[in-house]
Every structure is written in structure tokens, then in C-alpha cells.
Design a protein around this nucleic acid. Structure first.
Lengths: 174, 174, 174, 174
DNA sequence: CATGAATGAGATTTCATTCAT
DNA sequence: CATGAATGAAATCTCATTCAT
């Protein structure tokens, strides 16, 4: 990976996240990256493949991070870890903004992560012995989704108290 | 409102929602609406003003609907009503998809609704006598946000059970 | 057919014929036609479809002309007519230059005419009662091909004498 | 001549012949030759000089071949030899396809061969004692041209019979 | 001799917008 | 009110060529 290729990736991610994929011309990416416009196409063939590359990389990284969190032994620890995940997006905020923007209108770019998330939650609550794990997984899925969006849109909630509500619901404080 | 103007609005909303504002050319709107491209500009001046028109109309309608729900006397009834709101979007699914898509990347089009929602929730939980209404409002805000997104993205959860979790949390079943 | 659309066709045919399809940018066509570059694509969608349109039109016109010549009663008159065809290309010289240029490298644009020509020659010599009509058709096909190319490349031959050689071969003089 | 230089020549000739000079990017030549794009320019300076090199080489080879054929003593033998020339192009089919493609639209690359051909034919028929050698040369020129094109475009004629027609015309069977 | 990253000019195409009818 | 021809700016993409290694 040459420096310039990396600069293109950085610039593209930031611009796609901030203004949207369709609203971002390759000329702007090139300028932001300090690179000729042609180089984008030498490295990525097309604007869309650049997007795919960015999404694949980001999802791969996220999956790795998530798998780390989920490798804990104690199921309650895993649940605590999952609750922390939304707060770990800060450093990848651009990726997650883009991810979120694509989710509804171009789900093909984000499906891989969605599948992983759904399956993981279901597994967790099965392991925890809930009699209706599917229902609990749904609740957590919905709540986590809302948490993600709230953090992404910089809602100024008291997130510690929010977490407490979940902690007491699942007896995570003991 | 002539028939053709309405057709333009319908086509634009559907296309903006499905593919995104930037990814939708006016030519496609015109074709979908069965109308000449020029007519769009005669009625709405510019593509952006067409978007603003659509968003304003949609938000107005939503506020009206919400105000209906919120006019109930009993605060618990209001809360029940709020919980139903995410399920009422089905018929305005295009508007809400678009709303959601704009929220993060072009918040200027959606701020009016957001402000309304935040203030309303806070007021409800104050009325209900919670000692920390801001915190409960945050929880419900986050949960509702997740619920919206889940419904928008056609997640096949068992939403009745989900509601029950909230119902028991706030003793809405009595 | 608006005037400008016709101007585009004229300019494109002339430039494609003179410099080749690939060597002719649409910007040059637009300038030559006195038209905005975008208009080319409004009318023809793509540069290649513009080429197809030109070729189809030209072939249609040629087939019509040819059918006129071939409608004579007397088979010898028909043969005379065929021999005149290469000399009728002067007014469509641009089309035929382009036709010739595409024949070997992009035969898909010219096949329709080729098929017509082959079948017609065979039919003629069958009607004339030659015992080996296929062979005579081949000879005339080859000779006509050479004649076309020679005229296209402005070879300064004495074409009257050339015709005489064929006339005496097939006894067309009596 | 290094192996790689030769590979570039082979690939370029094949691609120029098949798709045309303008339609062939240097990147494709490089890929086809299994060579870096830069190497093309190290060896040939520019794409156009590569074309010139190819054409000059090919014409030189053709002239040599032709001179062999024409060195026969008996003028009728020479004529027979000339009639065979179109059938010798099989092994240089790519060169001749390219030659043919350039003839009308970029004659500067092919003039050398044309001049040679015209002068040679005239000389032959003068030596053979025809009273109108120019006219016979024209006829043969036209016929040969047609023969070349027919063979290049893989027309499935019975070429033996075609040759016989010429053989009897010039009493070459004696 | 050879590579491959990089450029910049230009090619094709798209698209919001204008305007005469 | 409505059309559709036309524009011009900008978007995506291509490609011959250069250059450091």
C-alpha cells in the first residue's frame, strides 16, 4: 500500500461519510488527498470499487474488534462488552457514518456486518439461558441500533445512566 | 395542486427514498412521473427546493399525526401512543427512509422534527413524575430511534414482544 | 429530425470517415456541427449508438438504391447496373469510406450489406444461366470489391476501359 | 532485439490489426506482451513510432518477398507469381489487416508499398508487350485489390476457379 | 534493461437548468 | 400549464507518457 493510495482511502472515507457517496466527486477526493484524479482509477478502477474497498476494509476491521470483545468466557462479560461497542466507534466515526448512510439505501455494502451482528446476539442470549433468546436478542439489537445512531449524531445524552438501565435489566452489576 | 405536480412529488419522494437524493436525476423523476423534465422546474424552481418541499410537507404531516397521539389526557396513554408511532410509518415509509437518510448527512432538512421529538419525550416523563425524566427520555429516545430504524430496514422481529418489554418496564399494562 | 440532429449526423459521418471512429472525439463532432457536446448524447445516447445510427441509415439508403438498379427485367441490364454501382458512391463517399474502414475490424456494423451483396450476385448469375454461377459471382464480387476500394482511394485509373473488359467478358455490348 | 521488445511488437501488431490503432491502448499492448507499460516507451518512444516501426518492418518484408517473386525470367511466370501473392499473406495476416485499415484513413503509413505495386504492374504489362499496358495494369490492380480484401475478410470463395479465370484471360496455362 | 507509480490532458457521459414554442 | 430541444458545467473515466527506482 503506497502512501498515496492510503491518502486516497482516507480522503474518500472522510468525504463519503461527511457528504455522502453520490455527493462526493472524485475530483474532490483527489484534491483532498493531494493526488491526481487519475490515480484514484489506477488504484481502484472505479469510484464504486473504491467504495467497496473502503467498506470491506472497515467491516473486516470491525469484525476483528468485535470478535475480540466476544471472546470473553463469562457470558455476562460478553454482554458488557457488547454494550461498550457503540462507544468504540469514535475512532472510526467516519466509517460508521458511511456504514449507516448506506444501510438503508444500498444494503449490499453493509450486509456482511448485519448478518454477523444478528447471529452473534442470538447466540449470546442462547448461551445466557434465556427462555426466549430471540426476543431478547431483538430487544438488544434494537437498543444497540438506537445507541449507535444516537452516538453518531452526537446526541448529548447521559450515556452512563443509559448503560445502567441495561445493566440492571440484565443483572450485570452484581 | 395539479395532478402532474402531485405525480412529480410522488415520484421524487419514492426515488429519493429508494436511491438517495444525489443519486436521483431529475430526468428519472420526470420519466417516473410521466411528465416533461421542464415541468419540475416550473413547479419547484430547483431540485433542492423540490426536496425541501417534500420534507416540509412530510414533517408537517408527521407533526400533525404526533400531536394527535400526544393530545391524550392520561400520560400513560400518551406513552402507549408514542410506542405506536414507529408502527405508523408504514404508509409513509418513503418519507421516513428519506428522513433517515438525510438525518446524519444533511441535518438541516430534518432538524424541525428532531427538536419536536426531544422536547416531547422530556415533557412526558416530567409529567409522569419520574425523578430523572431526562434519563428516561434519553432511554426512550434511543429505543424509539432503534425501533424506527429496525422497522425501516424491515427487520423481522417479533415487535409485540418488544413492546411488552417496554410495557412492563413502565407498567403500562395495569 | 431537428436541424441540429441532422448537423450532428453530417459532422459525425464526415469525421468518422476521414479520421476513423476511434480517432474522432465527440467534442470535435460538436464543434463541427455547431452544437453543444451534450446534445449528441441527448439525441444518440452514446458515441457508439451514433455510429450505429449512421451505419443503419446509410445501409438502408444503399439497399434502396441497389434494389432500384436490380429491378430491371433483362438480366444483362441488371449486370450493367451492378457495374455502375461503384461509380454511384461519389455522393455518399463519406459513408462508403466509413463502411470500408469498419468492414474488417468491426464487421458487425456492415454485415447487413455484405449479406445482401453476396446473395444478390449469386441470384443474378443463376438467372443468367451460367453453369457455375457461384464461381462467376465470386469473380464479380472480387472485382467489384477492388473497384470500390480503387474509387474510394481515388486511384486515377481509366475506368471506362476497365468496364469494357467486363462488358466484353459478359457480352454486354451487343 | 530483446525477447521483450519482440513480444511488444507481436502484441501491438495483433491488437492494432484486430481492433485498430486508435482503439488499442498501450496498457493493453503491455498486458498482452507480458511487459510493463513503461517498456514500450523505452523501446519505441511513442505509440505512433511503434506503429511506424511495425509498418516499416512489414513493408520491408513484403517488398523482399515480392522482389523474389518478380525476379523470374519469363514474364508469364512473373504474372503467375503476382497472382499467388494474395495467397501468401496468410502468415502475415495481422500485418495486412492493419495495412488495409490504414490505407484509406492514414495513407502515409502505406504509401511506400502502394507506389511499388503500381509501378511493378505497369512494368510487367509493358514487358509482356500489351498495347495498352496501363489499362491491363489497372485491371490487375483492381482485381488483386479485391482478391486481397476477400482473403483478408475470409470470404469462402473457390479461389482456384477464380485464378483460372485470370489464367485463361492471359493464356497462362499454355 | 525493466518496473510500476504517478500525472495531466482529454474523452465520454451526466445532469440541473433554461427557454422558445 | 406543459413540452422538449438545447446548453454548459461538471462528473467519471481513459490513456499516452514520464520518472524514480
Amino acid at each position: 500500500m503506497t502512501i498515496k493510495k492510503q491518502k486516497i482511502l482516507d480522503a474518500a472515507l472522510q468525504l463519503f461519510a461527511t457528504h455522502g457517496y453520490d455527493a462526493t466527486p472524485t475530483s474532490k477526493i483527489a484534491k483532498e488527498a493531494g493526488v491526481s484524479e487519475g490515480l484514484i482509477f489506477r488504484h481502484f478502477e472505479s469510484k464504486e470499487k473504491l467504495l467497496v474497498f473502503i467498506m470491506d476494509m472497515g467491516i473486516e476491521k470491525s469484525l476483528e474488534l468485535s470478535r475480540g470483545v466476544l471472546s470473553a468466557e463469562n457470558p455476562k462479560e460478553i454482554l458488557k462488552g457488547i454494550l461498550e461497542l457503540p462507544f468504540l466507534i469514535e475512532e472510526d466515526i467516519h466509517f460508521w457514518k458511511l456504514h449507516h448512510a448506506l444501510k438503508l439505501q444500498s444494503p449490499e455494502y453493509t450486509d456482511r456486518y448485519k448478518t454477523f451482528k444478528d447471529e452473534t446476539l442470538l447466540e449470546i442470549f442462547s448461551k445466557l439461558g434465556y427462555k426466549n433468546p430471540r426476543s431478547e436478542a431483538a430487544f438488544m439489537g434494537v437498543f444497540l441500533e438506537g445507541l449507535f445512531v444516537s452516538i453518531l449524531s452526537k446526541q448529548e445524552y447521559d450515556y452512563e445512566q443509559l448503560k445502567q438501565i441495561i445493566y440492571s435489566k440484565y443483572n450485570l452489576n452484581e
